[in-house]
């Protein structure tokens, strides 16, 4: 049984089929790349799987449970977390608060414990703060911890988004273009983080245009074209595939 599976997903916007009968399955512990030309339906696929947009047809299962059209928050509770293509920081909050926010099981997020300043809230907050500080340090953001995240650069925002996501300790991580607009040094750094997370057992799915980084990072590549699955397999094999060269690289084999 796959950890995450999409069966016959369909999503239309107006008359346009963004994804069309798309079936993809991800095994536990895999590191999978999703690529395809612009408009191939990569982000729509993520949106349907992560509950941001309900699909028109098809099913999504997570650990064998049907989670089609579940809300993003309930999917997050089930261990599936995503990032966004255009990094979405909580710009009016500090880096620290961005990361701390994502902590699950904080009783202080309910009215009564908050009003009464319950000890369970304070104890949990201690752990949350420690963990958040660890993650902030891990991503080299500690010197920016008290900055509003609107002051961060594009690359730093990508790091912050990763740190925030990891606060949830997800089983499945969906990353939408984690290297877009990031300088080469930081790209390598982010790639290393992803590799480490995967080595620790996290299942990761990445949408990316940065082919070089992607192909050396992932175990398996999925290529989408016009909302359908074009080819999937090991990166080396996929990149040599005629159809991929035709569709994605426009016949121009690098």
């Amino acid at each position: 049984m796959s950890l995450l599976a999409a069966e016959g997903l369909v999503k239309e916007f107006g008359g346009l089929r963004a994804i069309d009968q798309l079936s993809v399955s991800i095994e536990e512990g895999e590191l999978v790349g999703v690529m395809g030309p612009n408009g191939a339906g990569k982000s729509t696929f993520f949106n349907c799987v992560s509950g941001v947009i309900p699909p028109d047809d098809g099913t999504v299962t997570l650990e064998g449970t049907d989670v089609t059209s579940d809300s993003p928050e309930s999917l997050a509770h089930r261990g599936l977390v995503r990032t966004f293509q255009d990094t979405r920081e909580l710009e009016t909050m500090t880096v620290r608060d961005n990361v701390r926010l994502a902590a699950p099981d904080q009783p202080g997020e309910r009215t009564l414990p908050a009003l009464l300043r319950s000890s369970s809230m304070r104890e949990r907050e201690e752990t949350v703060r420690k963990r958040a500080d660890e993650l902030i340090e891990m991503f080299d953001l500690d010197h920016l911890a008290d900055e509003y995240s609107s002051n961060l650069s594009g690359g730093q925002r990508k790091l912050l988004e990763l740190a925030r996501t990891l606060m949830l300790d997800p089983d499945v991580l969906l990353l939408d273009e984690p290297f877009a607009g990031v300088n080469p040094t930081l790209t390598r750094e982010i790639a290393d983080h992803i590799r480490n997370l995967n080595a620790d057992g996290m299942t990761v799915v990445i949408i990316e245009h940065e082919l070089e980084t992607l192909t050396e990072l992932v175990d398996r590549l999925i290529v989408l074209q016009q909302g359908r699955l074009l080819v999937e397999g090991e990166p080396e094999v996929v990149l040599e595939d005629e159809r991929v060269i035709e569709a994605y690289l426009g016949g121009d084999s690098k």
Binding site: S50, V52, S71, P72, E73, A76, H77, V81, R82, F84, R88, E89, L90, E91, T92, M93, L101, A102, P104, R164, T165, M167, L168
Partner: peptide
């Protein structure tokens, strides 16, 4: 700040 992000962190 951003409702969708807040939902996506559960």
């Amino acid at each position: 700040a951003d409702e969708l992000v807040t939902r996506s962190v559960g």
